[in-house]
């Protein structure tokens, strides 16, 4: 019975998670002949790669019942660091910043007990300001070696695809093969029980925020390589988009339920939607409106325990 399958797994995958992107794919290939061209597909791939990497980081935080709104600002900040620091230090500087931001978020949430929404909203605002301060006008030059990482293709397969494969492989390995991953599911289901099983809940929680920030930093490196410039507002939509993507992928924001496959499907859905609207000629503003609706629908479809009133 499908009901019992859904009841007893922690992937959060349901029929709609898989059917929606498939349906979009079919509809778009009928509506627009340009959709199935190699050029367009590799275009979509390039567009969603950064979102996929950010969303996988968001997944890690969501599994323990947290949320990270600062991912977009981290991404923006990364692009500004890369064009502002000497080429030799660009990558290490960006990664160090990512780790530091994750540590601050994680410690704020787990040790100081600030609500994750408030904590990461505060760092989001702070970092957005910082990014604009560093690099107010979009532009600048990106180190040469980075451009190659984003634009070369091997055997006709674009580099963006390899970024996606690498991110998915690492995330799958972490979540389904390691002790670390299993314990995240345990913490997300019940922190107190997990602690009683001898799991250092705080340490794991801080790690999750660090992983999420680093993922956003990597996405920022990818973006700055792709557009060959620094832009202090390029990351703005990523916070909401990544949360929408994981929610559509069946990840429960309350923690303990979610999967890499779901996040991949959710990201693809969002990417197809953007691309399709482009092809069919619908205003990009409508796409933003649609994202809001999708988030609402995806969250409403999740099963939750009923509270009174």
């Amino acid at each position: 019975m499908p009901v019992s399958i859904m009841k007893s797994n922690r992937s959060g995958l349901r029929l709609a998670t898989i059917a929606l992107p498939a349906l979009l794919f079919v509809v778009l290939s009928i509506l627009s002949p340009a959709f199935l061209s190699v050029q367009n597909l590799s275009n979509i791939n390039g567009q969603i790669a950064a979102l996929l990497i950010v969303s996988l980081g968001q997944l890690v935080v969501a599994l323990i019942g947290g949320i990270d709104l600062s991912v977009g600002a981290v991404l923006s900040l990364t692009t500004t660091i890369i064009v502002s620091v000497s080429p030799d230090f660009a990558l290490p500087a960006a990664l160090l910043a990512g780790i530091a931001i994750g540590l601050v978020n994680g410690i704020g949430v787990t040790v100081a007990g600030v609500h994750p929404l408030i904590m990461t909203m505060a760092s989001m605002t702070f970092l957005q300001g910082l990014a604009l301060l560093i690099h107010p006008v979009p532009g600048g030059t990106v180190p040469d070696y980075l451009a190659g990482l984003a634009w070369t293709s091997a055997a006709g397969v674009p580099a963006a695809f390899f970024w996606c494969v690498a991110a998915v492989t690492i995330a799958s390995f972490l979540l389904s093969m390691t002790r670390f991953g299993l314990r995240l599911f345990a913490i997300g289901a019940n922190q107190a029980s997990a602690a009683r099983n001898g799991i250092a809940v705080r340490w794991y929680s801080v790690s999750c925020y660090v992983i999420c920030s680093v993922a956003a930093t990597i996405a920022g490196i990818f973006i700055s390589a792709r557009v060959s410039s620094g832009d202090a507002t390029v990351g703005a939509p990523f916070a909401l988009d990544s949360i929408t993507a994981i929610a559509m992928g069946g990840v429960q924001l309350a923690g303990g339920t979610g999967s890499v496959a779901g996040v991949v499907l959710g990201t693809i859905t969002l990417g197809l939607l953007t691309n399709g609207m482009n092809l069919v000629g619908i205003s990009p503003f409508l796409r933003t409106a649609a994202t809001g609706l999708l988030l609402l629908v995806a969250i409403s479809m999740q099963r939750r325990t009923v509270i009174g009133v």
């Binding site: 345990a186 001898g198 303990g256």
Partner: peptide, 18 residues
Amino acid sequence: LTILPNLTVAENLFLGRE
């Protein structure tokens, strides 16, 4: 009970010392 609902029986048995 400290059994976690989203883990399998084996995972629950060894949680913390997998």
